[in-house]
Amino acid sequence: MSWLDLRYARQQQIQRLDPVTDHCQICHLLAGYEFPWDITRSLELAMLKTYCVPSISQLLDRTNEFHHHTQKRYDDTGLLVAEILKWGYDSDRGRESIRRMNAIHGHYPISNEDFLYVLSTFIYEPIRWNERFGWRLFAETEKLAIFYFWLAIGKKMHIRDIPSSYERFAQYNQDYERQHFIYSDSNRRVGESTINLFLSWFPAWCRPLFRPCVHGMFDDLTLAAFGYSNPPVAVRNLVENSLKLRGHVSRWLLPRRKPDFFTDSKLRSYPDGYELNDLGPTKMLSHLNHSPKQE
């Protein structure tokens, strides 16, 4: 078998699967083997974009979780999503992760349309990222599998009126952003707390250099909703071209033999490992761990 055959063997394996019935397996392969870094980064961008909606950012701002426990909130979100991607939503750990999410969300007055928008970002931000920076493009089978995967999870989260087609939900996502991305001080505060978290992962001397690069990832609607000015064209080009270069280089790497899920990372919040019972807002953990289990 040639190097090229090895590099694209997993894509060929995915192409033999059905996006409707095999979407869990396809998403497992995409998130764990084909695009682990890209999917993590695209979901970080998705998370930031949800803060452009005042009804979402005001709720997060009031809880103070994103200001006082930013790293834990980030790690918990990543772990819950990764547990479902790694094990599937019908596994024991997948079902427990969804129960955990439902219990956390059940404490807050979140509108169904906000739930719908957040769900849509988990589908379309990874796809858009892939179109810009992927080492190869998602095939139609893979894009549909991502849609059906999150459609099933949305139903398990009791989200109502989820558009039943890939195209209709993509349109909902775009229409929602045009209508609801409005500047609010809470957008700025929650966004700043999260961006500061990302920057804290780098040495202090280079953080001021990286900040405009984060802004360079945002489209005009997102920048306006956060109250940021447009970064210089040179910064946008640097970010865009650097990520495209990474994609080109990745194309020539040997395929991953071992999975790389967020659950396998050494996390700042859980240096000694974690249990699902550890995940959730700090003030709510005791209640969550003693509440009746429900999906």
Rank of each mutant, 00 (worst) to 15 (best):
A139I: 15
R132K: 15
A139N: 15
K155S: 12
L144S: 04
V118H: 10
P126V: 01
Y148C: 09
Y124T: 11
G154E: 01
F133I: 07
A139M: 14
K155V: 02
A152V: 11
W129E: 03
L144P: 08
R128N: 13
P109T: 08
F133S: 08
Y117K: 07
A152Q: 06
L137D: 03
F138L: 07
I127D: 00
E125M: 13
N130D: 13
F149N: 07
I127P: 03
E142S: 04
I153R: 09
R128M: 14
I153N: 03
E142N: 10
R132S: 08
L144A: 14
A145S: 10
V118S: 14
E113Y: 10
L137A: 07
G134M: 01
F122H: 13
L151M: 15
T141G: 02
M101F: 13
I104L: 03
I123S: 05
V118L: 14
S120W: 05
E113S: 02
N112C: 04
A152M: 01
W150L: 10
L137T: 10
P126C: 06
E131L: 09
Y124F: 14
F133G: 04
S120Y: 13
N112D: 00
F149S: 09
D114L: 01
L119T: 05
I104G: 15
M101Q: 04
L116V: 03
L151H: 10
F147I: 12
E113V: 11
E113K: 14
F149P: 01
P126N: 02
W150K: 15
H107S: 12
K143N: 12
T141N: 09
R128E: 12
I153E: 00
Y148L: 15
T121P: 01
I104M: 05
M101R: 03
I146F: 08
K155F: 07
I127N: 13
G154L: 11
F122A: 14
R132D: 04
I146C: 09
K143T: 05
E125F: 02
S120R: 15
M101T: 09
G134T: 07
L119P: 06
K155L: 07
F149E: 09
